[in-house]
């Protein structure tokens, strides 16, 4: 972003990479897949790099409002400083916070989830996908709570997945009735409370019952939880957990 600012150029969109997308080995692959899509579609995008900082989502959900607001106000200063108008992110938690919670603190932007962004690129014909490897494969989409139930976006990821010419199957609990992967509300960063089993196993078991070849995710945390769940049931050989962006990048041979 700083480089754009130095040359006086304005990018079409700021890609908010997020902490998972920056630091988590698995999520970095999602970041790279999405960047390949952006490049293929010739989208002029920027990232904040070292100037990006946690949105504060886990701090707020864990009850630390001070820390959340410190993060939020600092990020808003940076974003407003660059005059950012449009943001895309591959993380539904960043998406929810930037879109819904920053306006009350003086940061109002058009915020898109990457599945919405990719869907628009496909509709505009800026990238083309012809099924590729996934033709006829059984794919099922796990709705992230913060994208689906939280923000009412159920269709964009499904419309994108339809481009794969795969057999798209709905889970028993899907869309507004989808079951959480277990990571939200700062659970990702703590041990689960005592119970009879972990939430991700409950969900993974249900997903595996649909006998998919690929589980499509739209959130780096769901991705981690489901990947762990699939491993727990010793299915990692047959069933892959992939982000929607990875599936499109792979199918478009990017």
């Amino acid at each position: 972003m700083a480089e754009f600012a130095a040359t006086g150029e304005v990018p079409d969109v700021l890609f908010w990479v997020g902490c998972a997308g920056s630091f988590d080995d698995r999520a970095r692959k999602i970041t790279k897949a999405f960047v390949r899509i952006l490049n293929a579609a010739k989208v002029k995008f920027a990232v904040l790099g070292q100037e990006e900082s946690c949105t504060g989502d886990p701090a707020r959900r864990a009850g630390n409002e001070f820390l959340f607001q410190m993060q939020a106000l600092n990020n808003i200063t940076v974003l407003n400083g660059y005059g950012v108008k449009r943001i895309v992110t591959a993380c539904p938690h960043c998406f929810n916070t930037l879109k819904n919670e920053y306006p009350a603190l003086g940061g109002s932007y058009e915020v898109l989830h990457h599945t919405q962004f990719i869907n628009a690129l496909l509709k505009e014909g800026r990238i083309k996908v012809q099924g590729g490897n996934f033709q006829g494969k059984r794919i099922t989409f796990h709705d992230p709570c913060y994208l689906g139930r939280g923000n009412g976006e159920y269709e964009a990821p499904r419309e994108v997945l339809l481009k794969l010419d795969a057999a798209l199957m709905e889970l028993k609990r899907s869309k507004q009735n989808s079951l959480c992967c277990g990571a939200g509300g700062a659970q990702m960063f703590k041990e689960p409370e005592p119970g009879t089993r972990d939430v991700n196993l409950e969900r993974s078991e249900e997903v595996l019952e649909a006998k998919p070849d690929v589980i499509a995710a739209g959130c780096p945390f769901c991705n981690t939880m489901l990947t762990d769940g699939v491993k727990h049931f010793n299915k990692e050989g047959e069933v892959k957990v992939k982000d929607v962006a990875e599936l499109i990048a792979e199918a478009a041979d990017l």
């Binding site: 990479v17 902490c19 997308g21 920056s22 630091f23 988590d24 970095r28 970041t31 790279k32 990232v47 790099g49 070292q50 100037e51 990006e52 900082s53 946690c54 504060g56 886990p58 701090a59 864990a62 630390n64 820390l67 410190m70 993060q71 700062a186 990702m188 960063f189 703590k190 041990e191």
Partner: peptide, 27 residues
Amino acid sequence: PALTGMFNNVENNGAPWAFGADRRLEW
């Protein structure tokens, strides 16, 4: 306890994990 660790990381590194901002562009 783990959440205290997360708070510290967010406060000191700007991320819920113990990675510094200097590694944000490693990908």
